[in-house]
């Protein structure tokens, strides 16, 4: 019974990680991709870890520590990455802007 509940949680986690991967492919720009990557993968990790808690109940405390670290560090790292992109001048994607995009930073490519 416990292992069945655990398996269901594992499946839910895996589905959310899959959704994260699909979103990573479909989203138009870097900020949206970071959003999908952070949220879906965090919830997916929670699902997987909770599933393991049900399958191996004797590991619960260590798994909770892992959960805490993931919850604290994954938003911080994604925030740092997006801040780096923002500082380097990456623009936010808009639907209207799509028509008049021009190849930018030609000089950079030659270096």
């Amino acid at each position: 019974m416990m292992s069945l509940i655990g398996s269901i949680f594992l499946l839910i986690g895996a589905i959310f990680i899959l959704l994260g991967a699909v979103g990573l492919l479909r989203m138009p720009d870097v900020y949206n991709r970071i959003q999908v990557g952070t949220k879906a993968v965090t919830l997916g990790t929670i699902g997987v870890v909770v599933g393991i808690i049900f399958i191996h109940p004797q590991w619960w405390s260590k798994l909770l520590v892992i959960l805490g670290f993931v919850l604290l560090t994954s938003p911080v790292s994604s925030s740092a990455i997006s801040r780096a992109f923002y500082r380097s001048g990456t623009k936010v994607w808009h639907k209207k802007r799509l028509a008049k995009t021009k190849p930018e930073q030609k000089g950079r490519a030659k270096e």
Binding site: L19, G23, R26, L43, I46
Partner: peptide
């Protein structure tokens, strides 16, 4: 809130034309 965020995101990712209007 995290669960709600992910359901919302799943809806957006799986819909055919993504309803997004990103802005800072």
């Amino acid at each position: 809130a995290l669960l709600k965020a992910n359901l919302d995101l799943a809806k957006r990712v799986l819909s055919r034309n993504m309803h997004i209007h990103p802005q800072m």
